[in-house]
């Protein structure tokens, strides 16, 4: 079943001059159609201004399409009456870890969503405990968020969404402000959610190494979906990725360089181990 379906979705920002008169419109998302099935791990890639964040905000009814329709769990996001149900079934984690934590104690922050939904007190405690355990932050439940590292704060944010028992989580560049260790922590937690808890994950990012484990990847450029496929399919198109000015993992680049000088390595090598193995094969070792 489709958890999220977008059909011919466009979104326009209205630009205004200093007096507030309409100067024109900018099309951030342009006729995008996609469908995401329950349990999938989806990555959406693109650089700033490609429309990926705007698209993400449609999946949680923070924005409504100017044209076209978005269905979340079968519900049309333009329907006012469904808005809270939609936000509960599609949780959202944002870029800046400091600006989305409301509680002054980790466990209170995780309880914020269920409190808003009117979950009974005892069940809130159960949900908080299981969510914090799922992201490996249970031992920090009594801490102040201010004392945590960036990666830990983002895991708390993820737990906060998880406690609302969503069917899918949209993560809008959750690692952009983190250091490499924090990035690894968060991606590990996200993968665990997808594999262990079976939550549909939609990861928006511009780091290539984070999409390797995705089931499907969408690359966005200028409001369109420019590429779509499995990570391997995406990474076999090095030239195209370079034209979109996206990073390519160094292993993939190295293999591509060697291919260009006539060494018949296969397309879309993603990991070090693969590379060593393929080179070994060619050299008969």
């Amino acid at each position: 079943m489709d958890i999220i379906e977008a059909k011919e979705v466009s979104f326009e920002y209205v630009r205004r001059d200093e007096e507030g008169n309409v100067e024109g419109t900018t099309r951030a998302v342009d006729h995008v159609s996609l469908d995401i099935r329950q349990g999938e791990f989806i990555a959406i890639l693109g650089h700033n201004g490609s429309g990926k964040s705007t698209l993400a905000k449609h999946m949680n009814a923070i924005l409504c399409p100017t044209e076209g329709t978005v269905w979340v769990d079968g519900k049309d996001t333009r329907q006012e009456s469904e808005i809270w149900n939609i936000r509960q079934s599609a949780g959202m984690v944002f870029q800046n870890p400091d600006n989305q934590i409301i509680g002054q104690v980790v466990e209170e922050d995780v309880g914020f969503g269920p409190e808003n939904m009117g979950v009974p007190t005892e069940e809130i405690w159960e949900r908080v405990e299981e969510s914090l355990k799922a992201v490996g932050m249970y031992q920090y439940r009594k801490h102040s968020p201010n004392k945590l590292s960036g990666g830990q704060k983002q895991r708390v944010s993820i737990a906060g969404v998880l406690a609302m028992h969503p069917k899918c989580i949209v993560l809008d560049e959750p690692t952009a402000m983190l250091d490499p260790n924090g990035r690894r922590e968060v991606i590990r937690a996200v993968r665990a959610l997808n594999q262990v808890e079976g939550v549909t994950v939609i990861l928006i990012t511009h780091y290539m190494e984070e999409i390797i484990h995705a089931d499907r990847v969408f690359v966005m450029d200028q409001g369109h979906i420019a590429m779509e496929g499995t990570p391997r399919e995406i990474f076999s198109q090095v030239e195209r990725l370079k034209a979109l000015r996206l990073d390519v993992p160094q292993v993939t680049l190295l293999a591509y360089e060697l291919q260009k000088s006539g060494i018949p390595l296969p397309d879309g090598i993603l990991t070090r181990e693969e590379f060593v193995e393929e080179v070994g094969k060619l050299l008969g070792k």
Binding site: Q250, V251, L253, L254, E257, L258, S261, I263, R272, E273, F275, V276, V279, G280, L283, K285
Partner: peptide, 26 residues
């Protein structure tokens, strides 16, 4: 990558730090 290749028994330059150097050595 270069160290892993070396361990698999290839005579590559483990001092390479850029793609170009690595490609050249390979």
């Amino acid at each position: 990558i270069m160290n892993a290749l070396k361990e698999s028994g290839l005579e590559v330059d483990t001092q390479a730090t850029t793609i170009q150097e690595a490609a050249c050595s390979l």
